[in-house]
């Protein structure tokens, strides 16, 4: 017989993996719902998932590559170079943005039904992954078009994809909890993501950062993930030092995000 004990549990709490697993179907359905709704009322529908990264790539190529002269620092095609970085970056920023807003948007769920609250921000990350998958196919098409073949480095892609997802979950859950507690963080979040992009090697290569600062620079978890994506897709050499530091910071972010979320979780229904 199932037995539920309800009592106050003050302080920090571990993530209840068992409960998360039990509600995995709900997680899947919420991801599916987000994807459905996002494109249901749009004229172009799912085509947006293709257009968005393509247009961003064009803008970047024009302004940073041509006018900014950044393409001189890049071996190979600048559009491909940018697109390879936009893949993880857009996954990260969409996921973090959606996850951050998710609790406020899902306030009704929080105050009326019980399920592990982590499902809400994590499902936002999930729907960003669906968009990512579409963009990845576009990238492969672009590579074929430009005559860039897939190197064995491609096999390492899951490592960086996983890193990006975990970083997004960490930062996303942290922000979600902060936004519900202090609504200021809604504005902080938009601003933060903008700055974060410029602090990540999206429009420029890792190599323009002086070598002695690169490890420090890699404290930004997206630095290692983005450079890893470029290496995996375009066959460039790996910057393992940066990747290692970024992965450690990612795990740190994830732990902090999940634990902080769990600590604040008990208050969500009271303050949402």
């Amino acid at each position: 017989m199932t037995r539920i004990i309800i009592e106050p549990r003050p302080g920090w709490r571990m993530v209840d993996w068992h409960a998360l697993w039990r509600y995995r179907e709900l997680l899947g359905l919420l991801v599916w719902r987000d994807v459905q709704i996002r494109y249901k009322q749009t004229v172009l529908g799912a085509l947006w998932a293709v257009l968005q990264p393509l247009l961003t790539m064009l803008v970047f190529t024009l302004f940073f590559g041509r006018l900014g002269g950044m393409s001189r620092n890049v071996t190979g095609d600048y559009p491909l170079f940018v697109f390879a970085a936009l893949l993880p970056w857009q996954l990260f920023s969409t996921a973090v943005g959606q996850a951050g807003q998710s609790l406020v948007a899902g306030g009704n769920l929080i105050s009326k039904v019980y399920f592990p609250r982590l499902i809400i921000p994590i499902s936002s990350v999930g729907s960003a992954i669906v968009d990512f998958a579409v963009s990845l196919i576009v990238m492969l098409g672009l590579m074929a078009y430009c005559g860039v073949s897939i190197s064995p480095h491609f096999l390492t892609l899951p490592l960086f994809l996983a890193g990006t997802i975990l970083a997004a979950i960490g930062v996303g859950t942290l922000l979600a909890a902060l936004v519900i507690e202090y609504r200021d963080f809604r504005y902080v979040m938009t601003f933060l993501l903008q700055i974060w992009m410029f602090a990540s090697p999206v429009a420029y290569p890792l190599s323009i950062v002086p070598a002695e600062y690169r490890l420090l620079y890699s404290l930004n978890p997206m630095v290692g993930m983005i450079s890893g994506f470029r290496s995996a897709l375009l066959g460039e050499p790996f910057a393992w030092g940066c990747i290692g530091v970024s992965w450690l910071v990612t795990l740190g972010c994830l732990g902090l995000g999940l634990l902080y979320f769990r600590r604040l979780e008990r208050r969500f229904a009271d303050i949402v």
Partner: peptide, 10 residues
């Protein structure tokens, strides 16, 4: 949905 401040439910 919300946690008690004290006491216990089984």
């Amino acid at each position: 949905i919300t946690e008690p401040t004290e006491g216990r439910v089984e």
